[in-house]
Computed example of a mutant assay.
Amino acid sequence: GVARGDAAAAAAAVRAAAGGAVPAGTSVRLRLGKPGANGARPLEALDLKPRVDLAVRLERNADGNFSVRREAIGVTATPQRLSGRVDDGLYWALRAAGASPRAAQDYLRTIARAIDVGEVARGDRFDLVIERRASADGDSSLGPLLYAGLDRAQGADVALMRWNSGGEEHWLDALRLDSETRALIWPVAARISSGFGMRRHPILRYKRLHRGIDFAAPRGTPIQAAADGVVLHAGRAGGYGNQVRLRHADGTITSYSHMASLHVAPGTAVTQGQVIGTVGSTGLSTGPHLHYEVHRNGRAVDPRAVEGVASAPLAGEALAAFKSRYARYQALPIG
């Protein structure tokens, strides 16, 4: 029964205060004025909680306009652990253990990262940790899934934990934190015009070791990182012209030379396949091409003989912190 103009103004004000759309199911308290000639009633005040940590109050001022007040609500977040045995079906076993429909669906999606959920069998045991949020005014809600584990009678167990690294969230398996070898990719899709080994330099006119391989790619061709790594150098490098050097997790270094343009800066992390620049002909070069090198233990090696680089998802302090949190989750009481 609120007047159309008031309804539109209130909706816009609340959306702005909440930082987006108000979730379906949110309770709203209204105070309305006396009906006008057309039967519509003016909105005098509105209260709602679009989030467990935020209250919004809208109130009509003496001038007839609305004022909006946002009130932050203190929230305590604690992990809650649920566990149980799979009988007739994993979803219903999760629900019977106290998981909400959303939590059960999140668990199934997360486990599917590691195994085919259809392979979960009767007698397997599930284990999950959910964040429970309690606000200072007495409300509570379930937050995100933090951990998804599965103890299987047949097949490998799973222990996936949510982890933030470099501003991005990942699901890492606590049972598989050892290093793994990941194949390098070619930085450009082009033919190799010169291989690794001794050769007569086309400009200097004497024999010397060609420390990498050349790709005959046209000027402007995107150059991709051969593997995940960190940019050690991005800039001029003498006869190499414009060059990018990447350090990978196991200490392997790859370099990309004679580039026309550079798309990365020193110190930044790059992922395999990310474009780091374009092919050019800078430095001692007879024409557009990419000179690509791989160094191990301080020595240039033939890139075609390198199967991959070893990487571990975590190391050092990050690994210790991950293991500590995993131990805390395993020590939580069930229920």
Rank of each mutant, 00 (worst) to 15 (best):
A159L: 01
D173K: 07
R162G: 02
F322N: 11
L54A: 10
R31N: 09
A315T: 15
V14L: 12
G308K: 06
A97S: 14
Y91N: 06
Q80F: 12
I192H: 09
L142Q: 13
V279P: 01
R60F: 10
R95I: 13
V306L: 03
D87G: 04
L262A: 02
Y206A: 00
G1C: 05
I73Q: 08
V56S: 05
D151H: 14
P333S: 04
L204D: 00
R199Q: 01
G155H: 11
I276P: 06
L177D: 06
I130H: 05
S100A: 12
E168Y: 07
G89C: 05
V68H: 05
M161A: 06
F66M: 03
G138E: 08
A148Q: 11
Q272D: 02
A9V: 11
K34R: 15
Q330V: 04
R299P: 00
G118N: 13
V14A: 03
L128D: 08
G155T: 08
E307T: 11
E59H: 07
D47I: 08
L94I: 08
L204Y: 02
D302S: 09
A24Q: 14
A112Q: 15
A11K: 09
R219Q: 14
T26M: 07
R102S: 12
A216M: 04
A134N: 07
A9Q: 15
E168D: 10
V294M: 12
S261F: 01
P79R: 07
A321N: 11
P144H: 11
P303L: 04
A104E: 09
A77V: 15
R95S: 06
H201L: 00
V75I: 11
G251N: 03
V14G: 03
D47Q: 14
L204I: 00
Q272L: 05
G1I: 09
D151Q: 13
A12L: 08
V68W: 05
A318E: 14
H289N: 10
H248E: 03
L177S: 06
P202C: 05
A265M: 07
R162N: 06
L46K: 02
A305C: 00
P288L: 00
R29N: 09
L128M: 15
P23W: 07
R325K: 12
L128H: 08
A24F: 07
G149W: 13
M198A: 03
R245D: 10
G74S: 13
P333T: 06
V158C: 10
T252R: 09
A136N: 10
T76I: 10
V129F: 11
D137W: 10
L94T: 12
G241M: 10
A103H: 05
T181N: 02
L43G: 06
R182Y: 07
L319N: 06
I73P: 04
V158I: 15
G98L: 02
T271E: 09
T78G: 01
E131N: 03
D47N: 10
L145E: 12
A21P: 00
